[in-house]
Design a protein around this nucleic acid. Structure first.
Length: 585
RNA sequence: GCCCUCGUAGCUCAGCGGAUAGAGCACCGGCCUCCGGAGCCGGUUGCGCAGGUUCGAGUCCUGCCGAGGGCGCCA
């Protein structure tokens, strides 16, 4: 069951009735513009509809507000409704109603998260590491943000299909195989392990850039690969398998949902490229330009003002990523039946995706209820404000970053933690270290670059994973203690009396809104901000309201119920971000 | 040259057109024998600049300045 508990939802219908009663059915659909009030003096919630409506009905805003209030039937919900300032309608809820709403959320397994009215099939394309390369810090954001979005979209009731668009095809791959053939004579053709593969990739890259003859062979090798040459494919499969073992190990360490079955690499689309191109050609969207088959979506120009192409088929007859991305979009919309395709990819590729989507619309794959969206994110910056690198200037390997996160967390936990068994302590260190790393990535507006800072992300103060985990662990501790102190623990009836209780109740009721907004805007940081606010509200409550030493059994059990729900919301919220929440730390 | 993104407190960051712009850190001053001190309360400092739209702009639009990124066969 999901009972509508958030007053921001509950109040919509009464406002619609009141607006209709006051101004007629033409205005029935007017958004009441209900918001949380920023300050207690303005009540719990406010409706800002009157100011905008005033012009439409040709009356003064305060007068409009008064008319709405006069027709508003919220006696059971609100103890006070006031018109203030230019025409704000300030609503103060009845404590009994807040208590009932909190109780409803507590009894809801979804903690108030309302299911989508129109569930969609959403494809989320994220992570997308490259075969034959170790995952590095550059893959962190796509993987972490994408995974949070998968969880969020699922939580609000959408059908989510994860797609790991592995870089297992294309020019770099021809280069790698060609290099493998070159050195194979000396090594007996053994496939390097993934650790060596990184160096192997650099060698191939260097050779590709320095040796024009090799570069030509590499390009030809891509064509050989695409034509299905068995010898080439054998080498290719070995590289892919070795790489996938590495990726899965990282995913498990990182605690993301991606599984082997979610892999649909670039190679998958190889057999679909011809038909994709034929379809585009049939629609008259392709022209030959400088020997290459191109689409020119309108509105994109290059350096000299010339139309900018998507190169669907290269001069040498090979297909590049433009073709693959078009085929992937087509596949996702047609075969996966996606109504929404989400690409969690670096912001630098925004123009590329804009062009792919534009062609997708020209081809009729998008539009008519189907849409694609580039969920762009910024760069991880080091302390110098430049892209995050090792001291030597190399890329930071993801496994090493995870390792360091856990090590640093271990030190923090050892220093500050309670007495924990070694096993539990290392589990907590993992949860805290990995959680801190992921949360730091999620807590900022994803479109911006963010500064990587170990001390800040592992701090128990501020908007961090450890702070939220700690807040929840403290609550768990209250219940352990309560258990020791005897009966009376359990789901008590909630009573909202003190201001800090009211503030906490309001925060708890906002969980649904935070999740919905985060999922709708594809911005996990909004959920982070909410959880931090909730934890802050809890701390203030806990400071002012004795729980175990409450005045009466009724008050005690009510406050325990608030504690319990807070812990569950914090736990669920972190879970939606892909972060573990240990009971003790 | 054109296009995209960003610019909020000393630092790191919130703020889906609403009232007096918030948080953490840092700094200053208080408080509490405190159910987990990793505490509580208070204070100082800010929307890059200039126009415009709006009853109302940090938020939307235009221009400028600054930072980053992109701009044909790499992904």
């Amino acid at each position: 069951m999901t009972e509508v508990a958030d007053p921001l939802r509950t109040l919509v219908a009464p406002f619609a009735s009141a607006i209709t009663a006051a101004f007629g059915p033409d205005y029935a659909a007017t958004d009441p513009q209900l918001r949380r009030s920023q300050q207690p003096q303005f009540g719990d919630y406010q409706a800002n509809v009157a100011m905008g409506l005033a012009r439409r009905v040709g009356r003064g805003p305060r007068e409009v507000a008064e008319a709405i209030v006069a027709a508003l039937d919220v006696g059971e919900l609100c103890e006070r409704v006031e018109v203030a300032g230019p025409g704000f309608i300030n609503l103060t809820m009845r404590p009994e109603h807040l208590a009932a709403a909190v109780t409803a959320v507590a009894g809801d397994e979804n903690l108030g998260i309302a299911p989508a009215q129109e569930p969609e099939t959403v494809v989320v394309d994220y992570s997308a590491p490259n075969v034959a390369k170790e995952m590095h810090v550059g893959h962190l954001r796509s993987t972490v943000i994408g995974d949070a979005l998968v969880r969020l979209l699922g939580a609000v009731g959408h059908r989510v299909i994860r797609q790991n668009h592995l870089g297992d095809w294309g020019t770099p791959f021809g280069m790698l195989i060609e290099h493998l053939v070159d050195v194979g004579a000396q090594t007996g053709g053994a496939i390097p392990s993934i650790g060596d593969l990184d160096a192997f990739y650099r060698e191939a890259r260097t050779k590709f850039e320095a040796d024009a003859d090799f570069a030509e062979r590499a390009r030809a090798r891509v064509v050989t690969l695409q034509s299905g040459d068995e010898t080439t494919l054998t080498l290719w499969r070995a590289l892919v398998a070795e790489s996938e073992r590495h990726f899965q190990a990282v995913y498990e360490r990182l605690g993301v949902c991606l599984a082997a079955g979610d892999v649909r690499g670039e190679s998958f689309y190889n057999p679909l490229l011809d038909e994709t191109v034929e379809e585009l050609e049939g629609l008259g969207l392709l022209v030959v330009d400088q020997g290459a088959l191109c689409a020119f979506p309108p509105g994109f120009v290059g350096r000299e003002g010339q139309p900018l192409p998507l190169i669907v088929r290269k001069r040498d007859g090979g297909y590049g990523y433009d073709a693959t991305d078009l085929a992937a979009l087509r596949f996702r919309v047609r075969d996966l039946a996606a109504q929404h395709v989400v690409y969690v990819v670096d912001a630098r590729q925004s123009q590329h995706f804009a062009m792919v989507f534009a062609v997708g619309e020209q081809a009729g794959w998008l539009g008519d209820g189907r849409r694609a969206e580039h969920v762009a994110f910024g760069t991880v910056l080091g302390p110098d404000g430049r892209p995050f690198k090792t001291r030597a200037g190399g890329t930071v390997k993801l496994v090493e970053l995870l390792e360091e996160a856990v090590q640093r967390a271990e030190a923090v936990v050892a220093e500050n933690g309670r007495e924990l068994h070694a096993d539990e302590r290392s589990a907590v260190a993992r949860a805290v270290g990995i959680g801190a790393l992921k949360y730091a990535d999620l807590a900022n507006d994803r479109v911006k670059d963010y500064a990587f800072d170990w001390d800040r992300m592992l701090s128990f103060d501020g908007n961090t994973a450890p702070y939220l985990q700690y807040a929840r662990a403290r609550i768990c501790s209250i219940f352990r203690r309560a258990g020791e102190e005897g009966p009376g623990v359990g789901a008590g009836a909630v009573v909202v009396e003190e201001p800090t209780e009211r503030a906490l109740a309001l925060a708890l009721l906002s969980f649904d809104g935070a999740v919905q907004q985060s999922a709708e805007l594809l911005q996990p940081h909004r959920l982070c901000t909410y959880l931090f606010d909730l934890a802050t509200a809890f701390t203030t409550f806990y400071e002012h309201c004795p729980v175990l030493r409450a005045d009466s059994d009724q008050q005690r059990s009510s406050r325990l119920a608030l504690c319990d729900l807070t812990a569950r919301v914090l736990g669920r919220g972190l879970e939606l971000l892909g972060i573990e929440a240990p009971d003790r730390m």
